[in-house]
């Protein structure tokens, strides 16, 4: 009788579970993307039509471009905002830093819909801000009503906790004494940041960027409720293929494209990470 290695025994079930419930379905839609839908049924009729439609019809290109730009802008906004915030908590949070960061992470777990509902209560057309303006006889802020800006604010609201948490987790494992070393050796505060802090926390930052970019690219609910009629996103259109229109094959192809872009982002991030240069020394398990 051969003994099962304990690592396999312990980690095996989880890995197997993820392979079956994540990887197999993804492979399935990859397969379906080369099939054909007819009256709500999928037929194994191998062809490239779905991709041809996706890349030739202007509407899909627009959706994709819109989603890509939206995700990029949101990621950058989150990055700019989250860095100083995470830095402040990690460096100066003292014994409150766990509390401070949990308070930033918590709202995420209320779920998309209820968070959007809450956001609309303040920023929406009938929300607090516009009502207050109305009372003083002022016109509502048009920029906040069913515009790309409103959708972007919504995305930042939804995903900034990811970015803060990722950067924070990186910074708490960062040895701030290295900054003193840099200063003694002649680096001013900004120079020390660029030479030491930023490169040593790039992995955490890159993970944060991916964690914001990917769900934002697939976002369907936020643009639906905040973005207005001319904000149809790639994710919304994808959802419709599996809902109202029932064109699963085309929807699968859209899923594949979406996944490909997620992978591309991960690849770009991975390309910028040089493990040796990240100061990565393993997981420190003793």
């Amino acid at each position: 009788m051969t003994r099962i290695p304990p690592l396999l025994l312990l980690a095996g079930p989880g890995v197997l579970f993820i392979l079956v419930t994540l990887l197999l379905p993804l492979l399935a839609i990859f397969m379906f993307s080369f099939w054909r839908t007819e009256s709500y049924e999928l037929y194994p009729d191998w062809n490239l039509d779905n991709y041809r439609v996706l890349f030739t019809e202007a509407a899909y290109r627009t959706f994709l471009l819109r989603s890509l730009i939206g995700a990029l802008v949101t990621s950058l906004l989150c990055l700019l905002y989250a860095w100083p915030v995470a830095y402040f908590i990690a460096r100066h949070g003292g014994r409150y830093r766990l509390l401070l960061v949990l308070l930033l992470a918590a709202p995420f777990f209320t779920g998309v819909i209820l968070r959007i509902a809450a956001l609309q209560g303040i920023f929406g057309p009938g929300g607090l801000i516009n009502m207050a303006l109305g009372i003083f006889g002022l016109p509502p802020i048009a920029a906040l009503m069913y515009t790309p800006l409103a959708a972007t604010i919504g995305h930042v609201y939804l995903f900034v906790p990811f970015m803060v948490t990722a950067i924070y987790l990186s910074l708490v494992n960062f040895n701030f004494d290295l900054l003193e070393t840099a200063k003694i050796n002649g680096a001013g505060p900004w120079r020390a940041f660029i030479e030491v802090t930023w490169p040593l926390n790039w992995i955490g930052t890159a993970i944060g960027l991916a964690l914001v970019f990917i769900p934002c690219l697939a976002s369907a609910v936020t643009p639906r409720f905040l973005g207005g009629p001319s904000a149809t996103s790639f994710g919304m259109s994808l959802g419709q293929q599996f809902g109202e229109t029932g064109t699963w094959a085309l929807g699968s192809a859209m899923g594949v494209v979406l996944f490909a872009f997620s992978l591309l982002v991960l690849a770009v991030m991975g390309f910028t990470v040089n493990l040796k240069r990240s100061g990565f020394t393993g997981m420190g398990a003793r």
């Binding site: 839609i29 379906f32 690219l217 996944f259």
Partner: peptide, 30 residues
């Protein structure tokens, strides 16, 4: 194999919920 196992366990973080939803719908149904 530790790195591979880590990647497997953390991979779902980098797949959009929408994609998990539609792919498991399609996989299960079809």
């Amino acid at each position: 194999r530790r790195a591979l196992i880590l990647i497997a366990f953390l991979a779902p973080l980098f797949v959009a919920e929408l994609l998990i939803g539609i792919s498991s719908l399609a996989f299960n149904a079809r």
